[in-house]
Amino acid sequence: MPRVLIVDDAAFMRMRSRKLLEEHGYQVEEAQDGEEAVKKYVETSPDAVLMDITMPVMDGIAALKEIKKRDPHAKVIMCTAVGQQSLVMEAIMAGARDYLLKPFDPDKVLASLKKLVG
């Protein structure tokens, strides 16, 4: 069962994502900021990460870069709101594999994960 780390500072968002992913056969880990995400990534080596861009403590891009440093093959999907194009661009250049627009279209979330982890 592929494992996905969901990173978001909003508990509500984490809960919705968890529900969706678990319904479709994914095992889910959660982190509420970038720092925790890096820690969890190292501990649990998930198959993919769904990472919010805007977060307290350590934002999504900083966390992405930290994770990439530790695992260059990390598959990180950035979650973004409209109007963050340059941040997403930066994330892609830093090695993010995909990006999803919030609020999530469930089909797109699943399609993106499927491409990355099967």
Binding site: V82, Q85, V88, M89, I92, M93, Y99, L101
Partner: peptide, 12 residues
């Protein structure tokens, strides 16, 4: 959404 980013992904 954000087609320039997709284009960059293709190049990458």
């Amino acid at each position: 959404v954000m087609p320039p980013v997709r284009a960059l992904q293709v190049i990458q």
